[in-house]
């Protein structure tokens, strides 16, 4: 399988050269063809800048960007065979849905009847066959998002970039669109690169992802790798709601004197368990309960499945876990 997108020591700095803001700092990255790749990170971590570097709206201060082996660092956006679904969709307000979708084909000089046929085909794909004559202002948020998707896909890009594509949708719609995007990507076989700050979205949709922090990639891997084996405190903290244990506590629990992570769902009530502390809060989660325990000044969360007898707030309890659940992190 070939490489769709490659970053070679790419940096993007803003502001004066004497005191630059390092939005993207010497990033190396490869995205395989046909991947559903997520860039995850808090705002300001450099993930959106990376996306804009691929589309061409930002130019690297240093390094090279290749798309399918071709160096595009000197190619303007309109000559790159990638398309973007923008965060606010950026639909053209003065054009109807059909003309929006056909825009990319029009500027390439495709005759009207041909491009309209293609646009209708693409609208059918996103279940908007009947909406061609509407203006974007007459559509709901979810419909606009589908138009934006159709408008990008009609150009048959080799890479589709999605900038927080589901950020503006409400929860129910977001879940439905997640499934739809995933199946669309599998059917079309196009490489999808999407940016999100929502770890659940990244974990559930992507088949590989990069976690960004302060302009650098903190970790890159499959969702399972990143969820179960975070390399650093930042990743453990940011991806899911893992317990992060300081080195002293790790040592007490029988590990080396290093930072470690422990998933809440791997903990269970065990009178002989090594984690002993005071229950400070209990929350009902539907499928179970989440209890918070304070031990040696560290808060530990545990998720107990429904049906277990619950401890009382303020009582002292002990928790146990399988030795394999304790994940030692290489970096602080």
């Amino acid at each position: 399988m070939s490489i769709a997108v490659e970053f070679r020591a790419v940096s993007r700095h803003f502001g004066p050269a004497s005191a630059p803001v390092r939005a993207v700092d010497a990033v190396d990255l490869t995205i395989a063809e046909g991947a559903f790749f997520a860039m995850l990170g808090p705002s300001g971590s450099g993930k959106t800048t990376c996306l804009r570097l691929i589309s061409g709206f930002e130019s690297p201060t240093a390094g090279e960007i290749c798309i399918f082996g071709e160096n595009v660092s000197n190619t303007p956006p309109h000559l790159r065979n990638v398309n973007t679904v923008f965060q606010d969709y950026a639909l053209f307000p003065h054009m109807n849905v059909r003309d929006n979708v056909a825009y990319g084909l029009m500027v390439k000089g495709m005759p009207r009847s041909q491009r309209y046929a293609k646009a209708e085909e693409m609208l059918a794909l996103v279940h908007l066959d009947a909406y061609g004559s509407r203006k974007p202002a007459q559509l709901s948020g979810g419909q606009r998002q589908r138009v934006a998707l159709a408008r990008a896909l009609v150009n048959e890009p080799r890479v589709l970039l999605l900038d927080e594509p589901l950020g503006a949708l409400d929860l129910k719609l977001r879940e439905a669109m997640q499934d739809e995007l995933k199946s669309l990507q599998q059917r079309l076989g196009i490489t999808f690169v999407f940016v999100t700050h929502d770890q659940h979205e990244a974990l559930s949709m992507a088949d590989s992802l990069a976690v960004f922090n302060e302009g650098k990639i903190a970790q890159i891997g499959t969702p399972a790798e990143i969820y179960n084996h975070p390399k650093s405190r930042f990743v453990a903290d940011f991806v899911g709601s893992s317990n992060v244990l300081p080195p002293a506590l790790t040592k007490q629990l029988g590990g080396p004197e290093k930072w470690a992570s422990l998933r809440p769902e791997s903990l269970r009530l065990d009178a002989t368990g090594p984690l002993r502390g005071t229950v400070t809060a209990i929350r009902y989660l539907g499928a179970g309960h989440r209890i918070t325990l304070t031990t040696h000044g560290t808060d530990i969360a545990a998720i107990l499945p429904a049906g277990h007898p619950l401890p009382e707030t303020g009582s002292t309890i002990a928790l146990g876990f399988d030795a394999t659940a304790l994940h030692i992190m290489d970096q602080a």
Binding site: S59, N74, L79, R158
Partner: peptide, 21 residues
């Protein structure tokens, strides 16, 4: 299809120039 489309016209070249500078 390749990743880079050819610059076909003067307009394309000027756009590239504006993008670079």
């Amino acid at each position: 299809m390749t990743a880079i489309l050819p610059a076909k016209s003067v307009a394309d070249r000027l756009t590239t120039l504006f993008w670079r500078k």
